[in-house]
């Protein structure tokens, strides 16, 4: 049923889907790790990134410019969320930030409906990536290979930044112990804002890059945030490599689930989630604590 050529194709499909998850979940995981906030508006940055990128693409015809516009619109929304809303509720630390970001996601969804209407839209892959490659006898779309490659580059860049630069050390310090970092004179509110904006940038980027596969429509935010939350729960917080491995694992598991047990495939990711919660509540790569 599953020959080698098909297995390779499905593995690549899983990797591409996993990379899209990584672009979305890396930011969410960082925000959660640093600020302890579950940002339910994160899916909205993904959706708005897709819509704004599409608008830019239609206006200019440039796919690269559209990626930039999508990413920046995510960043801008992230900045507004952190600076004008979340800062007011950091001290509360209970359900308020979750409720606040949930409310923001509803507002952004309605705003998107108003601006871009309810008609689903689609982004066409640029001509230079619109071809297939013959891999072990199966045709495979070049665009998905580009997503895998792009995801690897982004991961390496973030990893080097986090591990090899002073700013990266500051972020790590903030994740490990905010009070101590503040005591050492680090401007934690500024770090919060920058990390939040960066996470939103990745979401906006992923939203547009993923739009030729997932489409652009109001409701994409809800579809995608559920998966991102699953990644954060399964992977645990605070580890970028952990987040990547989790995304790829879930992407591959989901894809093979669709092939091997199609009737129950929608349960694959959530079955893994339940098992992880039962066996290791801090997540596969979590740094401790059961919160």
């Amino acid at each position: 049923m599953l020959n080698v050529a098909m297995a390779i194709s499905q593995l690549l499909n899983g990797l591409a889907f996993g990379m899209l998850l990584f672009l979305l979940a890396a930011g969410l995981s960082l925000m959660f790790g640093l600020m302890g906030i579950v940002n339910l508006a994160h899916g909205s940055y993904f959706m708005v990134g897709a819509f704004s990128g599409l608008t830019a693409l239609e206006a200019t015809g440039s796919f690269l410019l559209a990626i930039l516009v999508g990413s920046l619109s995510g960043t801008f929304l992230g900045f507004l969320t952190e600076r004008f809303f979340l800062r007011r509720v950091y001290s509360l630390r209970h359900h308020e930030p979750i409720l606040l970001t949930f409310a923001l996601s509803l507002v952004l969804s309605d705003l998107s409906l108003f601006l871009w209407s309810g008609t689903p839209r689609w982004v066409q892959v640029p001509e230079y990536l619109s071809f297939t490659l013959n891999i072990a006898g199966n045709f495979y779309p070049a665009y998905r290979l580009a997503i895998i490659l792009g995801g690897i580059i982004i991961f390496v860049a973030i990893y080097l930044f986090q591990e090899k630069t002073l700013w990266g050390a500051i972020v790590r310090a903030g994740v490990d112990d905010k009070e101590m970092a503040t005591g050492l004179g680090i401007n934690i509110p500024l770090v919060f804002t920058i990390v939040f904006c960066f996470g939103a940038f990745l979401a906006g980027f992923g939203g547009f890059v993923g739009s030729p596969i997932l489409g652009v429509f109001v409701g994409l935010d809800i579809e995608i945030i559920m998966l991102a939350l699953a990644v954060v729960i399964v992977g645990g917080i605070g580890s970028l490599p952990g987040c990547l491995v989790t995304c790829l694992f879930l992407g591959i598991a989901d894809t093979f689930g669709k092939v091997l047990w199609p009737a129950y495939s929608s349960l694959t990711i959530y079955a893994i989630l339940v098992m992880v919660l039962l066996v290791r509540p801090t997540g596969l790569f979590g740094k401790g604590g059961t919160n």
Partner: peptide
């Protein structure tokens, strides 16, 4: 005959089959 559940986000695995 290839069938999949409602709400599947990525259909590439189905076409690969």
């Amino acid at each position: 005959t290839i069938l999949w559940p409602l709400g599947d986000m990525d259909l590439a695995p189905q076409f690969a089959r």
